[in-house]
Structure formats: C-alpha cells, structure tokens
C-alpha cells in the first residue's frame, strides 16, 4: 500500500524510547576486547630485532638501544594508525595493544611517548 507518512508509527514509538544517542563523555560504551588502541611495550622481552620498525607503515615506532641488551621504544601516537602490525611482527611478544583509545592531546609533543626499562607503563616526555 502506498501512502504518505508510513514512518509515523516508528516516530511515535521513538518518542517513548530511550534515545539511541550515547551521551559520550558522561557515558562510555567501552571498546570490545581486542580493540586496537594504544600500544604497550615490555622492555624485558625486547631483543632489538627492529622488525616492528621495518613493518610499521608510518614509521611511528622506534627501538633504541640504551644499554647492554636494553632497549626502549619511542612511539609517536600522532603517526600511529593503530593497525597493530608491529604486534604481529614482534617475535618475542614485547609489543602489545591495549584498548585505550582516548589519546587526544593539546600539544603534539605529548603524543610522543617513550617506554623504557624504568617505567614500562607509560612515561611521557
């Protein structure tokens, strides 16, 4: 049957339904498990093969040798496209992903983070 205003029923229903909008900063849906967010680095496991540097599509990651068998990772989150290829490339599972995605900063320099032996979680320069 062709008639105008076929959507009316849904409109009336919608007005009594809870809005589908997520009131973002106040409510968060949370990201699913395995979401590709900010990288994490475990210096204990890194052997300095630099496979991650070779495979990174944007050159966002840099592994620097800081001592005997000691490496630190410099990651530029502004360049990172969160594809997780470095995690796949890493043979020793030194790199991993977290589901943290709210990474915006006012200063671009704050996006450059360094993971070193002293502070494995997140030391910001």
């Amino acid at each position: 049957m062709r008639k105008p205003g076929k959507i009316a029923g849904q409109l009336i229903q919608s007005i009594f339904k809870k809005p589908a909008t997520l009131n973002y900063p106040a409510e968060r849906s949370g990201m699913p498990e395995g979401f590709r967010g900010k990288l994490k680095f475990n210096p204990e496991k890194c052997i300095g093969c630099k496979m991650c540097m070779r495979d990174c599509p944007t050159g966002a990651i840099e592994i620097v040798k800081v001592g005997e068998k000691k490496f630190e990772a410099k990651i530029d989150l502004g360049k990172c496209i969160y594809c997780g290829q470095c995690v796949d490339s890493c043979m020793k599972e030194a790199l991993g992903i977290t589901s943290e995605f709210e990474l915006a900063k006012l200063n671009p320099d704050d996006l450059k983070i360094t993971f070193n032996a002293e502070n494995t979680s997140d030391s910001q320069k």
């Binding site: 409109l11 919608s14 007005i15 339904k17 809005p19 589908a20 909008t21 009131n23």
Partner: peptide, 11 residues
Amino acid sequence: KLYARFQNRVG
C-alpha cells in the same frame, strides 16, 4: 527537541 526525539536522538 521534538524533532530529535522523533528521530530517537537526545536533542
């Protein structure tokens, strides 16, 4: 507001 609520938004 009504326009938004009809469309299942917050408005």
